[in-house]
Design a protein around this nucleic acid. Sequence first.
DNA 1: AATTAGCATTTGAATTTATCGAGTGCTAAT
DNA 2: ATTAGCACTCGATAAATTCAAATGCTAATT
Lengths: 338, 338
Amino acid sequence: MIMDERKKALLKEIVETYVKTIKPVGSNSLCKKLKCSSATIRNEMVALENMGYIEKNHISSGRVPSELGYRYYVENLMEPKDLTGEDMLKLQTIFSNNDLQVSDAVSKCLEIISDLTNYTSIVLGKSSNDNLLKQINVIALDERRIIAVVCTDKGIVENKQFVLDTNTDVSEIVKTSEIINKMLVGTPINKVAEKLEFEIKPIIAKRIKDYETVYNIFYDAFNDFIKHNTNMHVSGRVNLLKEPEYETTEDIKRIASKLEDDSFKEMVSNIDGGENLQIYIGKDSNFDDNVTVIKKKYKSGGEEGTIAIIGPKRMEYERVVSLLNYMVDKIEGKDERK
Amino acid sequence: MIMDERKKALLKEIVETYVKTIKPVGSNSLCKKLKCSSATIRNEMVALENMGYIEKNHISSGRVPSELGYRYYVENLMEPKDLTGEDMLKLQTIFSNNDLQVSDAVSKCLEIISDLTNYTSIVLGKSSNDNLLKQINVIALDERRIIAVVCTDKGIVENKQFVLDTNTDVSEIVKTSEIINKMLVGTPINKVAEKLEFEIKPIIAKRIKDYETVYNIFYDAFNDFIKHNTNMHVSGRVNLLKEPEYETTEDIKRIASKLEDDSFKEMVSNIDGGENLQIYIGKDSNFDDNVTVIKKKYKSGGEEGTIAIIGPKRMEYERVVSLLNYMVDKIEGKDERK
DNA sequence: AATTAGCATTTGAATTTATCGAGTGCTAAT
DNA sequence: ATTAGCACTCGATAAATTCAAATGCTAATT
């Protein structure tokens, strides 16, 4: 069976009507739009149903887009438009504020998007690998506790506390840290561990008696920097629950337990494809069969990450895609303007 | 009317039965426990109802504790017992791990409590005022951007980035920071702003040409430290939604919007009374009429804060009170054992 | 050949009715 | 002061009824 123009128009109409009304779409309601009788539409609907693009809940109900139908829609039919004046206006206030750091700008954006769309939005960011080490400081709190503070040229600061064995000399470590500091400045943050092991370790070993301890501290600190330096912001976390898809107690219980940080983290970080916007519908979302997740990566100002927007499958695709693209463009451009 | 012993026993029984079963309590079901007939119980119930301690949903239903009834219960009737072996066991594993920092230990505890009780638990912590300034560092990222890093003797580290006017000399600021550093070391963190204004400002003014800028940077940095250095952890955030109290779509929408971080923050920080555990029932919770909030302050290891547990009004009061008291005792004791 | 009008049929959703049982309040007996 | 007994209330549940929206199919029309 072939997707002729009328079938495409019909599917598009069904998706968009359903998204707006959340009610199964009947043949009668589409007569005017498609300029033909309800009977003709019914015939075409049978065809679309056979192709798997639409479904009936029961024999006498209207049609609802299937996951396949949504996918066909986002891949072939939808036409992301320019943002409406209102949507744009709200976002612009953020980008006009040059003082905001990237991560703040991103999370502010998401708040607005959640607000505009009533979906849940999440950003999972981390310092990008093009951060260069600017400075490390070791601060001795007392005879046994020290803190290592790591700062990159992009202005990202992390710290980690260590408790030493009683027989380690704190002042020795502080001194060593100054040496290491000089040797490491300017190193890309993801190369630090390597450099530490193959270039610095031999040198420390000569100068310091318990070099193993010192080495481990710095090794740990940097590993931690890379691992822990992720930040997540969630906006409109529970908006999903308000969708009519989640009606029964079971539904709510099931989805509610997924609205915790860990699930979000797992869901967002799991993105394939390149820099383009990705759309995962229903089962593909790996989150819940009733949702669509739209994700896009961004990279700006020493930070990179992924933004995800979770909504019901009957998402306002065109609008969300426009919003997300616009936002990432702005974010990535923000750096240049400085 | 007077609360004689039998009325007390009856109210206690009603509260505890209702908490267990979530069903209005009828006179018949209490005969055995109170060793009298259902008719007698009904008479007493009328008395309790007149006093405002219990309510009927409708004329032929059993009785349910009123907010006043719950309050009477927590103030006069309940007997927090020692923790059960199981509850204690789970918590002990945390405190046996001495390496955990306080804030980590607290949030781990809360995870367990949420898990055990199915309520939502929140901690809002901040560095306590007995933190002394250990060190400040100013790191120049480039000609215009600097980062101020503040570290206290308790090992709390915060940083803030500044963008300077083009006509400010970065190296000058770094130099000044070293002077200021020496003068401020050992100052309680909440006194820093004061000392900065009255002792340090005059000195800087003499040495540096645009002292106003430098002063503002440090002033801002410390203000930020005090303000922003709060951390919040939420555990079992959406557990509330699973309670049968939240059944209709409206209920869910209403409460769901309160499960966001900002509402939690506001709710937790709003605690009166002293160091003792506080119980806010229903309307008193300032959160939702259907919930009870139990809060307690803690203070340990340079950090202080408030822990709150939110559950339905028919909360397992005795258990939660025991858990929370036990936990705070352990947390506060943890410091000494080190 | 494609489209449409017409119509019986299906089905969920909403409304009404009937039934049941848990619990109460009151009175009179203990 | 307590309790047995009983009429009464009311929600919860299930069954029965009605209603409207939409379908699929056939035959007529373009």
